[in-house]
Design a protein around this nucleic acid. Structure first.
Lengths: 146, 146
DNA sequence: CTAACTGCAAAGTTTTTGCAATTGC
DNA sequence: GCAATTGCAAAAACTTTGCAGTTAG
């Protein structure tokens, strides 16, 4: 009867800070940007500690790791089901509070031998402001200054 | 009247090879595994060239880059709409030929100022064979050897 | 008290890049 | 012929880790 190697967790000021920054963040910060933010409050915090805490919080399921794009991971402090819109033009990522239809998930599960826990969905396209910019730039339109 | 900085593309044996490997691949190889495979045919090919060609092919839209997980990108030579099942236990990724319901996509698009081109969907759960293994391991069941 | 945690810096991984030589068109 | 491409190796970018000292419980 072995318990799943659960280890005692201490609350450190550093971990609290990382979590607080993530929770209060409207976007999806990277380790680096969390680090920069954290140093405003706690100048001695190290990048390694930020990484360790992000991994720890993710393993506990208290935050989500996104890792879209190539190298860099982004982190998300929002746990309720939601998905993402990624803009091809400016690279921004916003949340959509949509929920994948249960019927769809069930259909997929029925078709495969897979037990589905959750899903990650990312819509890829052009965001509102880039769309506007593109329209402004069109030559048919009276082209702005410069 | 400037065209979108389109640059002439040459066909090199290296690029063809990378594409051929990807197209004939049932799974989603990494740059590294494509490199290993490529060297069987063309021992002089370099890893840098594999990376350059993968990026090039992706930019042309001839392959897809997956980059799930942290560091390593995986590539996918299949362009028809399909999505992925990722197993939490063994880390494997398989294709599901499912299609996101148009009505769902349209609903999301209507809710936001976003113009959706495409979507990436990944179901996360436990694959068939891991599920079986887990069941075998359950102590209620007559536990196998070892 | 002591195991978890930290800061620091060095090391690890994955990907990109500069350069001179080739190669496809 | 010339620009695109290549091989090589060095550099960059991101993340993890070993260690000795600190801290929460």
């Amino acid at each position: 009867m072995e318990t799943e190697s659960l280890k005692k967790t201490k609350n450190s000021r550093q971990r609290d800070l990382v979590l607080r920054i993530l929770r209060s963040s409207k976007d999806h910060p990277t380790a680096e940007s969390i680090y920069r933010e954290a140093r405003k409050t706690m100048p001695s915090i190290s990048l390694g500690t930020v990484y360790r805490n992000l991994n720890h919080l993710r393993d506990e399921g208290r935050i989500r790791e996104l890792s879209y794009g190539k190298g860099i991971s982004h982190f998300d402090g929002e746990l309720r089901e939601h998905h993402h819109l990624r803009c091809l033009s400016c690279g921004s990522v916003e949340d959509v509070p949509c929920i994948i239809p249960k019927s769809f998930t069930e259909e997929v599960q029925a078709q495969t031998r897979f037990r589905i826990h959750s899903a990650r969905l990312e819509f890829i396209g052009i965001c509102g402001s880039c769309e506007e910019t593109a329209v402004e730039r069109k030559p048919e339109q009276d082209a702005g200054g410069e």
